[in-house]
Simulated scan of single mutants.
Amino acid sequence: MLAVEGIDTYRGPAHILNGVSLHVDRQEVVCLVGRNGAGKTTTIESIMGFLPVRSGRILFHDEDMTTLPPHERAKRGIGYSPEDCGVFPDLSVGENLMISRWLGDTVARRRNGGPRPDAEAQAFGLFPEVRNLLQRRGLHLSGGQRKMVAIARAIMLSPALLLLDEAFEGLAPVVVNRFAEAVMKIKAMGVSILMAESHLGAATRIGDRLYAIDRGEIIFHGPPQAALADEKVVKALRG
């Protein structure tokens, strides 16, 4: 579904990603793990089109998207929940969700030409609490609520691929369990997931495959349990 082929990405003069390659197949959860500053967010933002790629290619359903702007990637069915959640503070939760709801009609027509799934039922099925927040402004949400809204908004797009950047960061352990269950529900909807995560333990719980990144280079690819036994990966994550 997604193929990232040898991309190099810069932030200003800093060369962040060096020949990063990874792929995501249909209906699987792939975790990209690494410590803070290793290149996880830069990888996600390169795939979404927020950062230009200097070399390499990004393919989605065999279409070269390397130079497409972010909104065109969204129209092709790539959902995105950023690390900072990206919830508009002056809009209500309902208005935040409606942004993706509108675009989701275009995504569904492009994909199959027929009716789309019930986006509201899917989003509220993940996080029923969001239904009770529809009138609340984004400014007045807690950290956990913002993460719920960000993921629900991405699901409103009816994506084929969902990019999650640090979805578990800053959450209490009991809340992490809720979010892990939500990821599994999203997978059951037929959505593929690429998830950037700092904690190896959390990634191994939900990932079908795992990539480890350090200093902008992929240093491991394989089954999650193999990563736990790899001293190089564990050492890199500890910094």
Rank of each mutant, 00 (worst) to 15 (best):
A108F: 10
L162S: 10
K40W: 06
E45T: 15
P159H: 12
K235C: 01
L22I: 04
E181W: 05
L91Y: 14
D84T: 08
R35T: 11
R76D: 02
G94N: 10
E217A: 13
L126M: 11
A212H: 09
G144Y: 04
D118A: 13
D230V: 13
P69F: 14
D214C: 10
H140I: 15
E181F: 05
L163A: 01
G34C: 06
S21I: 09
G6T: 09
A212C: 13
D62E: 15
V29P: 01
Y80C: 09
E63W: 06
T42P: 04
L68T: 07
Q27F: 03
S55W: 06
A14Y: 11
G201K: 14
M189D: 06
L162T: 12
R76E: 11
D64Y: 12
M48D: 05
F88R: 02
I151H: 02
K187G: 09
W102K: 14
L32Y: 07
L2V: 08
M148C: 07
F50H: 10
E217F: 08
F124G: 14
V183H: 00
S55D: 14
R209K: 15
S100G: 15
G190M: 01
E28H: 00
P52F: 11
V130T: 07
E129W: 04
F220D: 12
D165Q: 00
P89W: 01
A212F: 06
F88T: 05
R146F: 06
D62S: 14
R11Y: 15
K147E: 11
I44Q: 05
V33S: 03
L2M: 04
G77R: 03
S21V: 09
A212S: 11
I47M: 05
A150M: 04
V176Y: 01
N112G: 15
I213Y: 04
K235V: 13
A229Q: 03
R146W: 00
